[in-house]
């Protein structure tokens, strides 16, 4: 899922200053699961903004709404009636959600309430970790399902670098060495011979090269 973190209230106040009717729009998908932009967080951030507005006499009028998914027009449509009533939207969706809502409402400012951080998983209660860099050409089969691009601090495809100490990364000692994990995993599944293969330089054109990436599925187009 996409993992995000809330912006601090002073930053939000700075973004919203000068506006009156503000809709705090939550998203019930990824950011709800990572406890950043779901219904509960909409309520908490709205509360904090109302308090800040009162303390600083900003005269905010804040409404709260959470839709199922902000990155999908079908769900944005459902909220159209409410959205029309407000001057600006503070979206608690990820970056894609903010832009999807903004594209739908050409004349309404849509501001981000979160900092979208990464694609990751919940590792422990209250702890999320990045697992995928969305590089565009997956190599996980080669490394026993552990991504060296995301999890190795040096993004090494032909590792290890040799700097790890007691299976900790030399760049970030709080992290396990990804290559140690890859070795253990490949050994466990009996595929250590995969490491004999020298991986060729990665084609980074599948990543953020020449603007945003687009996928077209002709079989699904109308």
């Amino acid at each position: 899922m996409i993992v995000a973190q809330r912006k601090r209230i002073p930053e939000l106040v700075e973004i919203l200053k000068g506006n009156k009717r503000i809709l705090v729009l939550g998203c019930g998908t990824c950011v709800a699961v990572c406890l950043a932009g779901g219904e509960r967080e909409v309520s908490i951030i709205s509360s904090a903004l109302r308090i800040a507005s009162n303390v600083q006499e900003l005269d905010f009028e804040i409404g709260e709404l959470t839709i199922e998914r902000q990155c999908d027009n079908v769900f944005i449509e459902e909220a159209a009636e409410t959205i029309e009533k407000y001057d600006v939207i503070l979206s608690l969706g990820c970056g894609a959600g903010v832009q999807a809502v903004a594209e739908r409402y050409a004349e309404k400012p849509v501001y981000p309430g979160l900092n979208t951080a990464f694609i990751g998983i919940l590792e422990e209660r209250g702890l999320w970790a990045e697992k995928c860099a969305a590089c565009g050409s997956c190599v996980l089969h080669q490394y026993g399902g552990i991504c060296p691009i995301t999890r190795c601090a040096k993004h090494m495809l032909n590792g290890p670098c040799g700097g790890s100490r007691e299976d900790r990364c030399e760049v970030r000692p709080d992290l396990s060495c990804a290559w140690q994990l890859i070795y253990k995993r490949l050994k466990g599944i009996g595929q250590l011979d995969r490491l004999r293969k020298i991986e060729q330089p990665k084609n980074w054109r599948m990543n953020l090269d020449g603007g945003c990436r687009v996928i077209v599925r002709e079989d699904h187009r109308i």
Binding site: L23, R50, N54, V55, G63, E64, L65, T82
Partner: peptide, 16 residues
């Protein structure tokens, strides 16, 4: 508390 409760307008929007 500097928040004057009479100035607070909690608006829980409901759709559907």
């Amino acid at each position: 508390n500097p928040v004057r409760s009479d100035h607070v307008n909690v608006k829980q929007e409901i759709h559907r």
